[in-house]
Every structure is written in C-alpha cells, then in structure tokens.
C-alpha cells in the first residue's frame, strides 16, 4: 500500500472540505473494499478521509419508507426491526460476519461492484440516494462497471427505500467469496412490479422481461417460458454466460416464491 494522509471527518461538510483541500483525496467508509484496493496499489490517493465520525449512521422508518444512513453497517441493517425482512436478508447475506461488522450501505452503493447485493435492492425497491449535493433515483444511479452517477467528491448521506407490498431477494452466492453469482430482487413496489438483477452483467440492472411476466401474473410459474439471452452475460471460471443466464430466471422464481 502506498502511504497517504489520514483524516477523520466530523461531518459531511467537513469531509467535503477535506476532500476539496486534498490533491487527490478519497473517502473511506468501512474500508472492506477500499483497503484491499489500496493494498493491491490499484489506487494511490494522497489523502483518505474517514467518514465514521461524520454522523452518517442510523435507521429511521416513517411508515412509508425507511431511510438508512450511508455509514450504517450491514450488521446493523441485518439486525434492525425498522427494516423490512427483504432488506434485512440482503444485508445478512453479504460476505461474512466480520465484513458485515465494518462494511457499509454507502460504501457498497458507491463502489457498485458488478456482483454486489445492495444495488439490486435499491433498484428493486425504487430507492432514492441522497448525497451532499442532490437526490438521485436508483434507476439513474448505477451506470456501469464500478461506475455511478456520483460526481467527483460527491458523498452519499443516506438511501431511502419506499415500502413494498411484497419483496424478496434470492441470491446464488459464490461459494468462496459469497458475492452474488446471480442475485435477483423482486418486489411489488409502490410504482408496480420491479425486478432487479445483480451479478449477471457489468452492473446491476432491471429485468424488463421478468417485470412484464410478473406484472401479468405474480407467480414463479409466470417465468416458466422466459429465457435470458447469454450475449451480454458475465462468464468466468465460476460459471459460463449460459449458466448465469439460466440462474437469472431460477433466482427470479425463488425471489417471487419467497416474497409470497
């Protein structure tokens, strides 16, 4: 790891000011992705601004939606009675207990790993990402491989998830890393049926074919005839594009079955 100057931020404004003053600064949340990246020398920031003292953690449920602070850990979400069972199960299935004790919602969303779990939940529930500059709809946020709509220096403060009538997440975890080989979040959301897929392509996305079939008939059987072409699907030593394309439909069925 190259050395850097470490700062603790005492608020979001303080973090933004410290980032602005740095030659090439980055924020750090739980560090569960950023520290491995720094160790591999894939990044070489001059300054690292730690957000743990910036007052960004906590969960509030106002009856229609739940707002989760960016620095809330996966373990805190998994253990919260203010969070829906579907969202709890997403957090519970991330990595291992020690990763869940440090990794955060904001870090996961900002990082936008192609196999990360939270992006599917944000898309599947039609969440809104609140930053220190604006509100961004989940549908506009995840733009590509490790790419998001965030500007340089923009900091996620929280994510608001509207309640859904029914929702569940089904994930086929990679047996070694626990990241999603494929994960599908399916919901009868406030604005209709939403189905989001992670792990299959360069970035989590909604599944229009799956949504159309499930809007007509909310049942696992409705997906019987649906096939996903393997063209743009990821292939690696863990699974071919055809295998992952098949998993998308299987996971979608399991999600709908679990949602009831």
């Amino acid at each position: 790891m190259y050395d850097f100057k470490f700062h603790s931020a005492f608020s979001v404004d303080d973090a933004a000011a410290k980032l602005a003053a740095a030659e090439d600064g980055t924020v750090m949340a739980g560090g569960q992705t950023l520290i491995p990246v720094l160790k591999q020398r894939l990044a070489n920031p001059s300054d690292v601004v730690d957000l743990s003292g910036a007052g960004l953690s906590g969960i509030t449920n106002n009856g229609d939606s739940v707002t989760i602070g960016a620095m809330t850990t996966h373990a805190e979400v998994a253990g919260s009675s203010d969070v829906s069972a579907a969202l709890r199960s997403v957090a519970e299935g991330i990595g291992d207990a020690q990763v869940r004790n440090r990794g955060t919602l904001g870090g996961s969303v900002a990082n936008n790993d192609p196999a990360a779990d939270y992006p599917a939940a944000l898309l599947g529930l039609g969440a809104t990402i609140t930053t220190n500059q604006r509100d961004i709809a989940a549908d506009d946020f995840f733009t590509g491989l490790f790419e998001t709509a965030l500007n340089d220096g923009e900091i996620i403060k929280s994510v608001t998830f509207p309640n859904a009538t029914k929702a569940a997440y089904a994930k086929f975890p990679n047996p070694a890393s626990r990241y999603a080989m494929v994960g599908v979040f399916a919901a009868q959301a406030a604005d209709g049926v939403r189905v989001a897929v992670t792990g299959a392509t360069d970035c989590a996305h909604r599944g229009p074919k799956l949504e159309a079939a499930l809007s007509a008939n909310w049942s696992p059987d409705a997906l019987d005839g649906v096939t996903i072409p393997a063209d743009h699907i990821n292939g690696d030593i863990h699974g071919s594009p055809e295998y992952r394309a098949h998993l998308v439909v299987v996971m979608a069925k399991r999600a709908v079955a679990a949602a009831g």
Partner: peptide, 23 residues
C-alpha cells in the same frame, strides 16, 4: 479471518482496518 480481533465488542478483520480507524 486469522487476524480477527474485537473492536468495541464486535469481531473485525484487523488486516482490513487502519490503525488510525481504531483511534
């Protein structure tokens, strides 16, 4: 997980945490 310690009561991987984050 060979490096797991408790920080404020929770288990964490001490190879994936900066010393200054434990200040």
């Amino acid at each position: 997980g060979a490096c797991v310690v408790h920080v404020n009561g929770d288990s964490m991987k001490s190879c994936t945490m900066l010393a200054l984050q434990a200040d």
